[in-house]
Design a protein around this nucleic acid. Structure first.
Lengths: 244, 244
DNA sequence: AAATTAATGTGTTATAATTACATATCTGTA
DNA sequence: TACAGATATGTAATTATAACACATTAATTT
């Protein structure tokens, strides 16, 4: 807007101050987790009568002294106790009728957390993990928001080592493959998968084996620290793409 | 937010209404064009004293009855006379101090137009085309916004046939290659480029030749209508990516 | 009119990436 | 001790990419 704000002062004067400022801004967080070989998302029961019985994403209005990312971190902290999570902005949703109580534009973020490590106190909250594949309907336009974030997540995991935010610190290649499969919704060839991962050179062999698995244990790996929480651009983006 | 708005009524009551609604929302448009073998962007002189002498993007506050995309279209129409242009949302920028006059969150869109076909009346406006490569500094955080949009454009042209929105209806393969080169900032091999384009099967040979070129004329092509203005997902996204 | 210039139009080969696919080995369990 | 089910690994076929050369055409110059 910038210039609009300044240039067209006369026009602005005519319009009520509230016309501009009566729009609220929120962030909504699509919090992904991984458990039982399924991609999950953290939802809360909607308490709006308009959406009785439906679940919705975690979100809140943003406050004057914070930017959107800070607001997202705040929500995550307040609602789940989580800190230091992977968070990425995805899209702004602005349909004029998207919120029954008034005009609210929301900016969607998605977040990746290790479900088992970050034990959030789900009890006293109305929070529940839901398998992404089972979600057919959500309050507001949250199904659209979730789908958009899922699409972005799929794109991201193909390009960057963000997927490890969903796993515990130590994991086996089988776990990693199953997670890729859960996110992408495809079946991958185990041998080719291992080759691809090995070429990426993301992992360190820490010389430990799986424990308490009902079969021959596999090696466990850690992500090399330089890839932790980073939003690095991989070869996949740098190559001649399109590829032209 | 949604739930936040409802659940925490008590908390909200304590906070002044203005704390939430005193944030303005704008859209800023990064309007790309292509001319003289250079990628250009449409800028306007900033009239804020804080940014004297600097250029800024075209933007405006959004209005109650419109969503973000409609606001972007309105700005394009009002400021340039352009209609029916390619437009894509990129990112929300929300640094608390990004606007000197107050709290303004802006959502950036980029737009692709055929500079020569859509002759905008630049005269009576303060609008000017600037070569993207020459832009070192802009008002507000507009340089960051422009760079973010350029990055997204680069990603897009590698995956989808959006680039044709920058070209006239009929174009030669040389023009197309030069445009890719301008956007991506790389030099492409002519033979390999043609092969890639041919495999995409985006173009129809309309059996016409270039005219008024100072050398042997090349064939001119049209984009197949099914790819016009569409945001189609190409093979590049569907293939086994990462590629896993 | 012929020679020159600068671009078009096309194909092959070498390399790299991807896919498909099979066997031996190890460990927990019955 | 045999079995089941998973790990670990390699090779060949296919496909995609990158590097590279020559004949052709039309505008321009001589």
């Amino acid at each position: 807007m910038e210039n609009g704000l300044q240039l067209k002062t006369a026009e602005i004067e005519k319009i009520s101050h509230l016309d501009y400022f009566n729009i609220a801004i929120s962030v909504d967080c699509v919090i992904f987790g991984y458990d039982q070989k399924e991609l999950k998302v953290l939802l809360i029961k909607s308490d709006l009568k308009e959406f009785a019985g439906l679940y919705s994403l975690l979100g809140d209005l943003i406050r004057i002294p914070e930017n959107l990312k800070e607001a997202s971190y705040r929500i995550l902290k307040e609602r789940t106790g989580l800190e230091d999570v992977y968070l990425e902005q995805v899209h702004a949703f602005s349909a004029v009728d998207r919120h029954p109580s008034g005009r609210v534009i929301t900016i969607a973020y998605y977040s990746l957390i290790d479900i088992n490590h970050h034990k959030l106190k789900l009890s006293h909250n109305e929070l529940h993990w839901h398998a992404v594949d089972d979600i057919k309907k959500l309050a507001f336009d949250h199904k659209l928001i979730m789908d958009t974030c899922l699409q972005r997540l799929r794109q991201q995991v193909l390009e960057n080592p963000v997927i490890f935010n969903l796993l515990p610190e130590k994991f086996s290649l089988r776990q990693l493959q199953e997670l890729y499969q859960a996110i992408l919704g495809v079946k991958l060839d185990r041998r080719n998968f291992r080759k691809k991962i090995s070429v990426k050179d993301w992992l360190v062999d820490i010389d430990e084996m799986e424990e308490n698995v009902p079969h021959r244990p596999g090696k466990v790996y850690k992500l090399k620290p330089e890839f932790r929480k980073k939003n690095r651009v991989s070869k996949a983006l740098i190559n001649n793409g399109m590829s032209l």
